[in-house]
Design a protein around this nucleic acid. Sequence first.
DNA 1: TTGTAAGCGTTATCAC
DNA 2: GTGATAACGCTTACAA
Lengths: 367, 367
Amino acid sequence: VAEQEPRRPDGDPPRPSRLRPTIKDVAAAAGVSLKTVSRVLNAEPGVAATTVTRVREAAASLGFQRDEAAANLRRLDRSTHLVGVVTGDVANPFYSQLVGAVEEIARRHGYLVIVASSGENPAIEREVLQSLCARRVDGLVVVPTGADHTFLLSSLAAGTAVVFVDRPALVGRVDTVLAANVEGVDLAAEHLLARGHRRIAFLGDAPGIYTATQRRDGYLRALQRAGITVDLALLRMGAHSSVDAETATDELMAVADPPTALICGNNRLTVGALRSLRRHRRPVALVGVDDFELADLLEPGVTVVAQDITALGQTAAELLFRRLGGDTRPAQTVHLGMRLIPRGSGEVGPADGSGQAASPAAAKGVG
Amino acid sequence: VAEQEPRRPDGDPPRPSRLRPTIKDVAAAAGVSLKTVSRVLNAEPGVAATTVTRVREAAASLGFQRDEAAANLRRLDRSTHLVGVVTGDVANPFYSQLVGAVEEIARRHGYLVIVASSGENPAIEREVLQSLCARRVDGLVVVPTGADHTFLLSSLAAGTAVVFVDRPALVGRVDTVLAANVEGVDLAAEHLLARGHRRIAFLGDAPGIYTATQRRDGYLRALQRAGITVDLALLRMGAHSSVDAETATDELMAVADPPTALICGNNRLTVGALRSLRRHRRPVALVGVDDFELADLLEPGVTVVAQDITALGQTAAELLFRRLGGDTRPAQTVHLGMRLIPRGSGEVGPADGSGQAASPAAAKGVG
DNA sequence: TTGTAAGCGTTATCAC
DNA sequence: GTGATAACGCTTACAA
């Protein structure tokens, strides 16, 4: 159509080296004004069909691509169509599943997602959140780490939508999606109690972590309801890595009257406990919190109470886009249930391996 | 300091509802000009200390936060400090590990990362890549899906840095990081051949996928070198899900002269094969491509050839930031080696379970 | 040390 | 139908 590239033989100072064509270039190439190009790009009505074609061709031949950031600057609805997702670590399967769920819904709404990991470090969390706000993301899905998120209040007031997931923050002021941790672990303990266990141990993460204490509370609640006095030797908090869990389990098995059953507060801890238990003679019933891949392929299969991570992410994303769509109802907190998945390890009775339900695992057979 | 919020009692048309304060507001509050605020924000020299304080206080009290997108518009170095990472699916552990590695390096460079999943769909891939370019990301790390990526050429010419990972694209024109797939699977086959296996099966993903055919080629190469005529009944391509793999393995085990060993082209297929094999009497040696969590906790442990996914992502990110740092050397392709990790399943001999190295697995014992 | 004016690439306003 | 011109929030060039 017109000249493909702004030629720049030796003497061409007025246009130093503009790499990307702008709508001005397109307008010149098509022989129309700026505004007409804008109209065509935005599919606004009231442009002659022939003009539309001419502009389209000019744009294509120049390889024009509209600068979204610049476009947004002047738009009435100043939306970047960007949401931020802040988790502890994208590489962690729990978080990446969450991110995946949010991303899918975001894509359906024409949004892109910026991910940032805090490494569970409040200082980094704050830094990335502010960086995200400075980029004017429309919304934020956050698994909060820090204790104080008031620094988000000004962005919140300025219209940035925020949803917290997995752990609460700015309680009552922001939409939040949580798993029913207390009820989930209560269920796990109930499951073991029903099989006759009285000496049930609980292995949990650091007490500073919301989900860790919630889960511990579920354990305590079930025991209390069953009229069992909690033996503090069987309650171990503070294990963070699977190696910690392995050591802690070794120690649990070494107490005077060792537990016949064990509940692990998350999947890292479950894996560590499994490594420890396979070294001990006495079979111990095990129920883990959080499902994990291959839990069914282990021997026996690992019984877990699982949260639906995808549902967690979807619910958060849906709340977020509802807000972005103009919903102004008061902040709400959604609790998502946990489900018990029996696979064998949690159906072992207290008197060595003789529990009635130990059979389903055995029934599966070995390859 | 000055008025916190632009008051808007009934008659206040000049400033409709500007939610966020701009440097103009800060300037007014501090009683200085626009430019002085800009100087302070950018820590430019030549501003009186008292003025700096005054501006800082005004900015803080207004809750001012600079709009990065607007700031970039006029900057000479028009960098968004944004990189895009496009993979098949962020929720997939392989990809999320890759994303995590890129993200960490990006953060060190002061960059944020936008993730987008293509679902292995070329049309979606193209769409998200163009959306990313329209947002003017400085760089792109892509696990390519489509066959044609020439549409990226204009952005490439305009200065967007691109690195392909895991699979090649725009060969020779763009930096690329690949795993040594052929050599890796060759190694796996060699491992089985050394234990006396002659009937080795290969289970691969769809032949349209680069890594699938590469891995198959490694299998073929090793067999050929060993002087073994390939039995096409033992070569099965096209299994994509773990369910496909389970079925395919069932069928492999049903052929007249069934294999004594099996190589699985990726971890999904390995899992499916494991499910199938545990239903069969005859023990079959198994080597999988790609490591996976708990591979060591299964009974026996699963022998794999593993690629270092984090290294893949790190290498890609480093190449990218080297380009963003001004490196203009010709495009390079880096091959990262794969490592064989023996855990038991691959050390079984061909004559039922009597292979010499079957012992290490048994030695581990059961919990 | 500080301020004025122009401009980044686009959309909004309003006139022709 | 189409086009000047201002404006978005900020940085850069140049003056004072």
